Amino acid sequence: MAAMGDGKVFDGIDIVVLPVAGTGPLLDLYVDAMGFDVVEKGPVREPAVWQRLWDLPAPPAESVLLGKPGSKGGWIRLVDVPGLPRPDAAGVPDRPGPYALDFYLRHPDATEAVIGEQGWTFVSEPVDYLLPGTEYPVRERLLDQTHSGLRHAFVQYREGRTRCVLGERPEVDVSEVNAVVFGTADLPGARAFVAEVLGGRVYFDGRFDGPPVERLLGLAPGDGFDAVIARGPASRNARLEFLQHLVPAAPRPPHAYPRVVAGCAMDDLDALAARLAAGDHGVSTGIVETAEGPQLGLRSRYGAAFQFWRR
């Protein structure tokens, strides 16, 4: 594990940035149905700077920060980008790029009913399976979040077994974002990037397969995928997950812009920038001075886009 202060310490995803053309439908989902609070809302200052940092095709206009007070990471920033192309459907995980956000639900049937009443569609009925390599039962259901072209995994919260804000606030029914899932064509490279460049703690390295997973994701019989999941030293949310994407049945074009940007505070931004400068891990902006302090953008070659700042 990397030592504090060397710039490698990834300690979870603080803010999940979702660029969208119009924030209204997602405010209905995240605020009205899932109980996120609007923490701040207003025009984006320095839009050209943030367009560069987030690698967007047009300048962002407005930002809405949504949070779960008492949580340690996993907040959502909706960024309105006028004219942003409509995203492709997520479908099965068969190409690099962002795939899903995971949430824990205290009363999943009730919350899912409210979400369904808003017109959102679920990919399947709930499935039950054991987390690979454990006897830990998982109840999960997938939502098709078409406004960002993502799946949302809704997982049954289990008291004392699941780390999230629900353990601190018994009145809350839906957690913060507890994981961001990216598909990659290079899972070993993504694992090394997380551990050696970011200093993340990989705590799961295994395979998801079997009939329940096939039903959940709409996979063909026998299909599955390998994945790695990382936390930081404090083991707080939201986690970073990479899965080895499936071979597509037909070629699918790469995503034209990052549909998800993982925002992470780091201890030493200068050291991180130096490790990324050669371009081995993707295209980095280098350190960019903004009104909110130094920032660094990365469009990684592992299917994930990042925004880093000093902790």
Results as ranks from 00 to 15, higher is better:
Leu272Phe: 01
Gly73Trp: 14
Met266Asp: 05
Val197Thr: 14
Ala250Glu: 15
Arg86Ile: 01
Glu46Trp: 06
Glu125Lys: 09
Pro132Met: 01
Ser124Glu: 08
Tyr136Gln: 11
Asp32Ala: 09
Ala153Asn: 13
Gly222Val: 10
Asp102Cys: 12
His281Gln: 00
Arg77Glu: 15
Leu276Phe: 06
Gln145Pro: 00
Asp37Gly: 08
Gly160Gln: 02
Phe204Met: 07
Leu27Asp: 08
Gly22Met: 03
Leu131Tyr: 15
Glu62Lys: 06
Gly218Ala: 05
Val155Cys: 05
Ala256Phe: 05
Ala113Met: 03
Thr162Gln: 13
Gly35Trp: 01
Phe242Thr: 01
Phe10Thr: 10
Arg239Glu: 11
Ala192Gln: 15
His281Leu: 00
Ala190Leu: 00
Gly282Cys: 05
Arg52Trp: 00
Glu241Gly: 01
Phe308Gly: 03
His281Pro: 00
Ala304Val: 02
Leu65Gln: 09
Val228Glu: 00
Asp270Leu: 13
Ser284Ala: 13
Asp88Met: 15
Trp75Ser: 15
Glu168Val: 02
Asp209Ala: 15
Asp223Ala: 15
Tyr136Lys: 13
Ala277Trp: 05
Leu65Arg: 15
Arg201Pro: 00
Gly189Leu: 08
Glu289Arg: 14
Ala89Asp: 14
Val165Ile: 12
Pro85Lys: 01
Ala220Trp: 07
Val202Asn: 01
Val123His: 07
Glu135Phe: 04
Ser284His: 09
Ala249Lys: 05
Lys72Ala: 13
Gly293Met: 02
Leu217Tyr: 13
His245Trp: 07
Pro108Thr: 00
Thr290Phe: 04
Val20Asp: 02
Val197Tyr: 02
Gly67Arg: 10
Arg207Pro: 00
Phe122Val: 04
Glu176Gln: 13
His255Val: 05
Ala262Asp: 09
Glu135Gln: 08
Val177Tyr: 01
Val123Trp: 07
Gly74Pro: 06
Gly218Ile: 03
Lys41Ser: 14
Ala220Asp: 14
Asp55Gln: 10
Lys68Phe: 01
Gly133Arg: 09
Ala234Asn: 11
Val181Gly: 07
Gly282Asn: 07
Val17Thr: 07
Val283Phe: 10
Tyr257Met: 00
Arg141Gly: 05
Arg252Phe: 10
Leu298Ile: 04
Ala271Asn: 03
Ala291Trp: 14
Trp54Ile: 08
Gln244Ala: 14
Ala195Ser: 11
Gly222Met: 08
Ala256Lys: 10
Val174Cys: 02
Asp209Thr: 10
Pro57Glu: 06
Ala291Gly: 14
His107Ala: 07
Gly35His: 06
Gln51Asp: 09
Ala90Glu: 11
Gly42Thr: 10
Arg161Val: 12
Gly293Asn: 03
Ala100Arg: 13
Met266Thr: 13
Arg151Cys: 06
Asp109Val: 14
Ile13Asn: 11
